[in-house]
């Protein structure tokens, strides 16, 4: 249980980051404005049929962007920063294993990232529930829960990156590189992959496996996974319109699980082996 003490200390420390608070306020405003627009201008945004699931899918876009950026901000220094400053020696002078430290970091920083998500989405949800009838609170809550899972996945990715190096500039470069690659450039890359695979020309119809490639970015996996877990959204999307065993929104859930486990496992391995 030694990770719990680390997590608590880490939460106390990281929650005082001013940059995080700034980003959180921006996110809160975006979430509220978006929800307001969704509620007040149904013809433009909701296609006439407003609901909890509709709002959820609408908010998912900004949630994906916020979570990825905020996770980098909150977590890139988690381990590399402690190594660079030397506070890791204070931490490991106490009886924690390095694995405890990594787990404590994941829990503590996830808590810090989940806080603004919960505040923003609870406020937005209350506002929407009071304004719309029926709303579909259960669908909306599952969406919020799924967003917390995305936050966990992103923290695991960035803590994993942070654990793989003793330099914060390297950790931030890797984390920002991850963001650029998977969140900004991925669409272009996946088309490029198809282009190359098809003998340097674009095919008339895209291959089925492109759906899999497209689920690799964590926020895409999250958007797809919403169709697997929100009851009223099931069957309405996230399957890529393809007829293959992997043509299911559960692929998004699997991909999120991958992002929770694999980068952290690699980072943990490197951190455990490192001379501090």
């Amino acid at each position: 249980m030694s990770w719990a003490a680390v997590a608590k200390k880490d939460f106390q420390d990281a929650v005082r980051s001013r940059a995080l608070w700034g980003l959180s306020v921006v996110f809160l405003l975006f979430a509220l404005v978006t929800t307001y627009a969704y509620v007040e201008f149904p013809d433009m945004l909701a296609g006439g049929d407003q609901s909890g699931v509709g709002l959820a899918l609408y908010l998912a876009g900004i949630a994906g962007l916020f979570v990825s950026l905020a996770a980098i901000l909150v977590a890139y220094r988690a381990l590399a920063g402690e190594r660079e400053s030397g506070s890791i020696k204070l931490l490991l002078g106490l009886p924690h294993t390095r694995t405890d430290v990594v787990l404590g970091k994941v829990i503590g920083r996830s808590g810090v990232l989940m806080l603004p998500i919960l505040v923003a989405f609870v406020l937005a949800g209350v506002y929407a529930a009071l304004s719309l009838d029926p709303f579909g609170m259960a669908d909306y809550l599952i969406f919020v829960l799924m967003t917390l899972v995305l936050a966990l996945a992103y923290v695991c990715i960035v803590v994993g990156i942070s654990g793989s190096t003793g330099s914060t500039s390297r950790a931030s470069a890797l984390a920002v590189g991850f963001f650029l690659l998977f969140e900004l450039l991925w669409d272009g890359i996946s088309i490029g992959v198809v282009y190359v695979a098809n003998g340097f020309s674009l095919p008339a119809t895209f291959p089925d496996w492109l759906f899999v490639v497209n689920q690799i970015p964590p926020s895409s996996a999250y958007s797809t996974a919403l169709f697997a877990v929100i009851p009223d959204a099931m069957g309405s999307g996230g399957a890529g319109g393809i007829d293959a065993f992997y043509g299911t929104p559960w692929l998004g859930v699997v991909m999120l699980a991958f992002w929770i486990v694999v980068p952290l496992a690699i980072g943990l391995r490197q951190f455990n082996a490192a001379d501090l």
Partner: peptide, 17 residues
């Protein structure tokens, strides 16, 4: 380390705590 007290070299404290 459960039975040892450590004052390390080149450490830094947690500035925000």
């Amino acid at each position: 380390r459960a039975r040892t007290g450590v004052l390390p070299e080149g450490f830094q404290v947690y500035e925000r705590l």
